[in-house]
Amino acid sequence: MADKLRAAKKQPDHPLDDLLRRDRIPHIWCPGCGIGTAFSSCLNAIKSSGLERKNVVMVSGIGCSGRAAGYVNLDSFHTTHGRAIPFATGLKLGNPDLNVIVFSGDGDLFAIGGNHLIHAARRNMDMTVICVNNLNYGMTGGQVAATTPNMAKTTTTPRGNPETPFNLPHIAYAAGATFVARWTILNTREITKSIEEALLKKGFSFIEVLSPCPINYGRRNKESSQDTLKLYQEKTIIKNGAHPSEIDIDPEKGIILGKFVDLQQPTYIEKYDKICRSLMNH
């Protein structure tokens, strides 16, 4: 009887339950935030990839997106600000059987952690990096980021951002990433597919996911979550194979989405084994 009652009271199952730390829900993300959508797309990709779960690990840095590692029911590492990629590098080199996902934000991966990102890409370190780009530092209250559009308002650029933002796929590509894609949180199926492809592919994969931060970025730039989604709907153009140098985020010209790069290159570990260990058998 008690069992039946408990069963009746039990919350409905969520299809991703087995990949979530249910005892950590509710999450900290604000209403209208896009991180959750990027996160669930990532979990769907883990599921559909068919990879053995115990070998899939998630590493995050610091920030709103950096909290993802705290909600995934896998071996998960919430590291220091900007250092998710080198931490993930250590995990991968320590156990090459691991399938390593780095899930973090634009500030974490491209400002404080920018140096690590370009070098991991250059090495073709086998990992999948998912960067939720919300154009600002959300966790600390909405400061200017390396991705904030020129003239946009943030708490540290109250009269408008004088700087020029990074084009993230271009940096990843130029540094040597062998898989590069960009989507918005409206493209959940495409995000899932890209992440799945990246997980099953060897090498450094980079997926940018544009995502609204209504609470901090949106508020100061008169852009509600709906406005951002509308922008994603109306101003994006899917152009697979577009050259990453030509896809600066410019709503006037249209925001280019798609899979831009998909190359086969030997990974760091493959090269290390071949070059540095080859004398061992002689």
Binding site: V59, D75, F77, T79, T80, R83, P86, F87, A88, T89, G90, L91, K92, L93, G94, H116
Partner: peptide, 8 residues
Amino acid sequence: ATVLGASW
């Protein structure tokens, strides 16, 4: 950071 990752 790699040292910590490898240890884990």
